[in-house]
Design a protein around this nucleic acid. Sequence first.
DNA 1: AAGACGGGGAT
DNA 2: ATCCCAGTCTT
Length: 384
Amino acid sequence: MNYSHAKKFFSTELLHWYMQNKRDLPWRRHRDPYYIWVSEIMLQQTRVDTVIPYFQRFIERFPTIQDLAEAPEEDVLKLWEGLGYYSRARNLQAAARQVMEQHGGEVPNQKDAVFNLKGVGPYTAGAILSIAFNQAQPAVDGNVMRVLSRYFLIEDDIMKGSTRVKMETLAEELIPEGRASDFNQALMELGALVCTPKSPHCLTCPVMEMCTGRIEGREETLPVKKKAKPPRPEQRIAALVVGTGGNEGKVLVRQRPATGLLAKMWELPHMQASAPGELAHLVPHEPAMDRIAGHLLEEGYHVQPNSFWRMAEHTFSHIHWNLQVYHCTEAEAVLTSSRVAEQVEAYTDEGHLYRWIEPKDMDTMAFPNVFLKLLRDYFNIVNE
DNA sequence: AAGACGGGGAT
DNA sequence: ATCCCAGTCTT
């Protein structure tokens, strides 16, 4: 590459800009590798403003790697509630246990060791090594690819793995001697504050004069990125089952299986409506109401369906749920007492663990946002 | 190489 | 209401 002047200018000006404009963020107040690590995991696919309160609570509850390693997984998941991509939380704790066993409780500073930690890929490994240990390793995330693709007018599709590798080579060449920590953060900071996805603030950009994308009028059309497929719609039927007798005032919830979507999170019982599209925006339905009751019966719970309560929606990156929620009441047990006893701790055929809960149980059990809102609304209404 | 895996913010 | 954002693991 013959861009040596453009590169030198970029690195010098960007670093200078960062030292004057960097944000005061909780994980920047110390150079604790554990803090850097936790923040980088949380920041994957997640905005800084969202992460800050989660980071504070997480560090308060798990001040050291050992605290995290020794905690019940349930506690970790609860602190991650609402942040999304929950495998990050489970991988982070698994990695903390790995660090206790293999590295004496200290975050390793060897590239292969860092890369081998669960949940740590090329980006996060580079971020830990550079930010925490000031090693000259590239840390290429979406911000960095956006900045580099514009400044150097790189038109490769950033969704391709080969593009990330190319960007890493470039990013590594740009690191000023001995300044990997500040420079890599500067690159990401520019992407977050100035070189934004839409309407970049070129007039305040420290490297605008030599930005090829800007000069060519391409800043709005870079980076090149293949569009993601829209999430597929799913119609689902859910039940809010209110307990009777010994379960008076409680609601029936269940824990999802240990793998897959929302693994180990708690939820209201629900099932997919058999004919996709059929129930899309309709609300009424004895058939649907009966189906969820039938589903619960198969799972070992006899409930009386009462009425439609409300709709709810939840969008994942690959699925869009359209939920019809029905009020049900716990009915007389049709099961033998031994079968009932079994269910206290047993998973059902579909891999769910059921439990009757009251409001205070929600302090320890982790729910996806859609069910959190439904349950909070229900308990608030009941308590009025 | 492609799909699974959340949730929030901007417009 | 519709678009955008984009790390790691699994297949």
